[in-house]
Every structure is written in structure tokens, then in C-alpha cells.
């Protein structure tokens, strides 16, 4: 399992826990925070958030750099296994993220928000009602506009958490679909390969010269793949491109390898090519088409 897949599994769970904490806040009593730091609690919390946030950003940037370096390595060396440094970065990201969430939860809990808790009506004895007139409002207090900052912040937090849960679940399901065998393990899809094979066969039928026909055939295939966003990378060889297609499981036979070998011979050799090679290319294309379930044109 890759680090991304692990993250996709853990993220919805963590967010759900955060939502639960936020929801509980509306139903349980305010945590007591009577220590000596009460007056500076919010400032300390915000400072902690900033420090943790900076550390998280640095860790994510380091992780992104390492990933870019890994992507630049040759395909043969690529591995889905997580190394020790990558594992440490992954754990650090989670620790920092969870720390930020915990500090945010503590801050919110300390805001003395009571809008979700119905205030208990104060039972006043009838004798007192009669004895004391209701107190007059303070001078100048009746005309000020009161903005409930706390409830608004709280509502925004809950909304953000719910949205994050939805997005993370969608992301996790998308990754699961991508990793499902039988579809696209790489970036070459079955439909694209099928169209590429048809383009190649058309090129082979149009040209008489065996060398030119084979090159045009492969070129058409590659161009079709490129137009569909699966172009051969600048530093890739044709063999590497088709290896990816074979690795998806869409192309299982040896036809793709034979076609690539024929292309190599046509492209990089100078010895004459006869109709035998041309027929072999045609046959390889037919086999590819058959493997992909396309209709073979005689």
C-alpha cells in the first residue's frame, strides 16, 4: 500500500473523530480551564497552531521534494513500498496534523459557547417578583449591535469539518477505484490502446515500404496515446511505454513486444526490411486488436 493510499484511509477517520469532538461540544459541559494560563490560553493556543502549521508545511514540502526525486528515478527502480524516511515523514505529518486539530478543539471548547445548550430557566419565587422591580438596563447598552462571533466560528468549523469528511471519503473511494486490478494500473487505458491499434493498422495498410510502414504504424499508435494524454515521456523508450501498457494487464500476449521490436529494427537499423517484417507487424497488430476485443479487419 502506498503512502497516499494509507493517507486516504486514515483521513476520513481522523476527520470523523474531529467532527465528533466538535459535536460533543454542543452537548456536554464546558471543560474546566481554571489554571494559571487561563487568561493567555487563546494566545498560547494560536501560537501553538502557528508553530505546528509551519512544521507541517515544512514536512509536506520535504515530502513533496522526496516524491519528485523518486519520480525522476528510472521506472525499473520505482517501488510502491514505503521507505524508512518516507514513513517518518508520513508519521510526522499525521502527528502535526492531529496536534493542530487537538489544539483547535481545545480553543473552541474554551470559547464558552453555549448556543447549543438550552439555558435552564431560572425559577424565581413569586414573592421576590413582587418585592423587587425588574432591573433597568444599563445606560447606553440597549442600542449596541451584538455580533455572535463565537457561534459563527463554531458553525464554520463544523461546516469545514463536514466538507472535509465528504471530500476525503470521495478521494479515498477514487484511489480505491484506481488501484483496482483489471482497470488502469498505469496511465494507459484499454480504450486508448484499442484506438491506438486501429490507428496503427490504418498506417500499415496505407504504406508500401516495409520500414516506413512499420515506423508509421508505431508512430500512429504513439500519437494516439499522446493525444489521449498518455504520451511517451521525453526520456522514455518505446519499450518502456509498451511495458506500462502490458503491466496494466490489458495487453497480455507477446504481440506488443514483437511490434516494438519490429519498430526498433525499422527505426534503428539500416539493413533491408522485407515483406516478412511487414506481415509480422500486421500480425502483431491483429493479435493486439484481438486481445483488446476489437473487430479485426481482414
Amino acid at each position: 500500500m502506498t503512502a497516499r493510499q494509507q493517507l486516504a484511509r486514515l483521513l476520513p477517520l481522523a476527520l470523523l473523530i474531529a467532527v465528533a469532538i466538535a459535536g460533543l461540544r454542543g452537548a456536554v459541559a464546558v471543560p474546566r480551564w481554571n489554571g494559571p494560563l487561563r487568561a493567555d490560553g487563546v494566545a498560547i493556543g494560536l501560537a501553538l497552531e502557528v508553530v505546528l502549521g509551519v512544521l507541517l508545511v515544512v514536512t509536506m514540502r520535504l515530502d513533496a521534494t522526496a516524491r519528485r526525486e523518486a519520480e525522476q528515478r528510472p521506472l525499473a527502480e520505482a517501488s510502491d513500498e514505503i521507505g524508512v524516511p518516507a514513513g517518518l515523514r508520513f508519521a510526522l505529518k499525521w502527528v502535526l496534523g492531529c496536534g493542530m486539530l487537538a489544539v483547535a478543539a481545545a480553543l473552541i471548547a474554551n470559547l464558552n459557547l453555549h448556543f447549543l445548550i438550552k439555558p435552564h430557566p431560572v425559577v424565581v419565587p413569586p414573592s421576590r417578583l413582587r418585592a423587587k422591580p425588574p432591573p433597568k438596563p444599563a445606560a447606553g447598552g440597549g442600542g449596541t449591535l451584538h455580533i455572535p462571533v463565537g457561534p459563527i466560528l463554531y458553525a464554520l468549523l463544523v461546516l469545514a469539518l463536514v466538507a472535509a469528511v465528504v471530500v476525503s471519503i470521495w478521494w479515498a473511494s477514487r484511489l480505491r477505484q484506481a488501484a483496482r486490478p483489471g482497470l488502469f494500473a498505469g496511465d494507459v487505458g484499454a480504450e486508448e490502446l484499442r484506438e491506438a491499434v486501429e490507428s496503427g493498422r490504418a498506417a500499415l495498410a496505407e504504406l508500401d515500404d516495409a520500414r516506413a510502414a512499420i515506423i508509421a504504424c508505431y508512430l500512429a499508435m504513439e500519437r494516439t496515446l499522446g493525444e489521449r494524454g498518455t504520451a511517451r515521456g521525453l526520456a522514455d523508450t518505446p519499450d518502456e511505454l509498451l511495458s506500462r501498457a502490458v503491466a496494466t494487464g490489458v495487453v497480455r500476449g507477446a504481440a506488443a513486444g514483437r511490434l516494438t521490436a519490429l519498430f526498433y529494427e525499422a527505426r534503428f537499423s539500416t539493413h533491408p526490411l522485407g515483406p516478412g517484417q511487414r506481415d509480422a507487424a500486421s500480425q502483431a497488430l491483429d493479435e493486439l486488436a484481438a486481445e483488446l476485443g476489437a473487430e479485426v479487419v481482414p
Partner: peptide, 17 residues
């Protein structure tokens, strides 16, 4: 490692001669 990284970046010859 460095040579392998460079191999993954240097363009290979084009398909079409």
C-alpha cells in the same frame, strides 16, 4: 543514483526519423 536520475531526464531519440 545521479547517473540513473540523469537517464530518467535526458530525452531519448524521437520516434519519427
Amino acid at each position: 543514483d545521479v547517473v540513473a536520475r540523469l537517464l530518467a531526464a535526458v530525452p531519448t531519440p524521437r520516434t519519427d526519423p
